[in-house]
Design a binder for these strands. Structure first.
Lengths: 223, 223
DNA sequence: TTAGAGAATATTGTATACAAAGTACAGGAT
DNA sequence: ATCCTGTACTTTGTATACAATATTCTCTAA
């Protein structure tokens, strides 16, 4: 009787619960860049001891969402313009690469998914709901990224995406950009479906370039 | 009198000491893939408590050198052929990218350094001392990578390099390959000094391709 | 009033204790 | 003989205690 598989509710270590909680708080801006992350304080707030909090903070540091100074604690990472440019430059190179190999490796099922998520994004822009739009955008790009079937590439890109998540959010809010985004997505989809790596790479590059311009101009406004 | 700055000997958290110790042990093969990393055991061996050992193991996990299963502890990462191929594919893309932008960004001082480390590598192959050769090779590539001045790119590539360090070692031992390596380095240097991104990218790609073939054939022999 | 020394306080780093889960092995039922 | 089960033991997960360092505040002296 091996078809009755009780997927016994997964055990979640506290450190991971805390990690996800803090991560979400940082990405949504509830914890602001520069804010100190004090262990006892967070531990009390979350109702756990310092140990899992410490471990979560270390994980955040390795992901680049927190910075630590020995004996002085951690704070929410404050990304500089240079740091943001570095992330975007690398992200661009990897996205171009993904688009290129997606042309070779994408299965028919994934091609269908690509068309669907592309359309879903277009529909999402109609809702004016930033969260919905952002999710649709992520879903679309995930199809491309996952089609590479390169685990290391996937985690690396996702980590980079996380770094700019906070800023990208503002960018997606600006609905004057939506028609251009849709156009860029379509171009990318066409190139991939036509198995044209060069065009796909270019389309992916342009897509990130525009994102970069938006984000950087937005950052400069803030100062 | 603020020119008397006692750069008070750096404080090194124990977790980092342990981390470096374990990392070295893994990279040099003293701790073998699949070997269990038990906290109490390692703590006793290193003369510290479990806490810094735990934190070091977590760091190793995030770097991909250890794998953890909740409630069952960690073991030295066992890289699969697929995993190795993934790493190499990504490494290739990033090395090509580095070579390309190095053409634009390399300063005259770095160009000098590039020529010097290239020559130093050629001389190192004469010594037949694997450690010396490996170090010279790393130094050469570091010049290229660092010239991009993209921190994120640099750490990402270094992390990938670390993953294959264990296998690359064997590859460098094979002195029948040395003349080819030297030739490949020279081609890369020429392309960069001539500011020819396309050639530089190609040369870097070929360099990794050959490394990939060597490493993969070597892995297959082991099974 | 301001600068500096020193105590008081807060915070991180490390060690240890206890709880919970996993593993291994022995003994009994089928 | 094999499989199941219960117990002893190991190991990790979390909490807490203590030590070392950083920060803040107060009080004094110039």
């Amino acid at each position: 009787m091996d078809d009755i598989i009780l997927d016994m509710d997964q055990y979640l270590p506290l450190r991971d619960v805390v990690f996800h909680a803090l991560r979400k708080a940082i990405l949504t801006g509830k914890l602001k860049p520069g804010e100190r992350l004090m262990e006892i304080h967070l531990a009390k707030q979350l109702g756990v001891s310092r140990t899992p909090v410490r471990e979560a903070i270390h994980k955040l540091e390795l992901e680049g969402l927190a910075t630590m100074i020995p004996r002085r604690g951690a704070q929410v990472a404050q990304i500089s313009e240079k740091g943001l440019k570095d992330v975007l430059e690398l992200r661009r190179a990897l996205d171009v690469f993904c688009a290129q190999i997606a042309c070779e490796r994408m299965t028919p099922e994934e091609e269908k998914e690509l068309r669907e998520t592309c359309k879903a994004f277009e529909e999402a822009t109609g809702t004016k709901d930033t969260t919905v739009i952002a999710k649709a955008d992520v879903a679309f790009h995930d199809v491309i990224i996952n089609s590479t079937r390169n685990e290391r590439l996937i985690t690396t890109i996702n980590n980079l995406a996380e770094q700019i998540y906070r800023y990208r959010f503002e960018y997606i809010k600006d609905d004057s950009q939506h028609s251009r985004l849709i156009e860029e997505h379509r171009r990318l989809v066409d190139a991939i479906l036509n198995k044209d790596p060069e065009k796909a790479g270019k389309a992916a590059g342009i897509h990130i370039d525009n994102q970069e311009h938006s984000i950087l101009s937005q950052i400069n406004l803030e100062d």
